[in-house]
Amino acid sequence: MTLESILMTLPYITVVVLFSLGLFTVLFKKNLIKIIMGIALMQNGANLFLVSLAYRRGEYAPIFTSAESTDMVMPTAHALTLTSIVIGVATTALLLSFVIMIKRHYGSINTDDVRRCKE
């Protein structure tokens, strides 16, 4: 295993770490703000995964340059990442506003207390 191949797998290892950290937070933390932080971690993991996938060695970013069109990478994954970042901002904002209202109504943001909908 060369150094280069290890370096190439590094982003994917980071993705797994970020994603599992996020999932761990969502599963085991009781604080709603921390749960949303976990979701944000997962979002970053997913975005990093897509960006790492889009990288092709020896090809150019699809920006207006003099490079041949066949030498450019497909920007689908980049477009998906940008969309995902925008959506992530929207969902995080909505989630945080829900938490603000929950704090007003329940006086707590612990998931053990926020459980009037049950049975």
């Binding site: 949303i36 897509l50 969902t91 209202m101 109504h105």
Partner: peptide, 26 residues
């Protein structure tokens, strides 16, 4: 309060679900 609570739960599950969908698309 209950409707906000229900919305929050739905939203957290949907968002995590959406990220898992994104992961499998990747």
């Amino acid at each position: 309060g209950r409707s906000v609570e229900a919305a929050l739960k739905y939203m957290v599950l949907s968002t995590v679900g959406g990220l898992v969908v994104l992961f499998s698309i990747g």
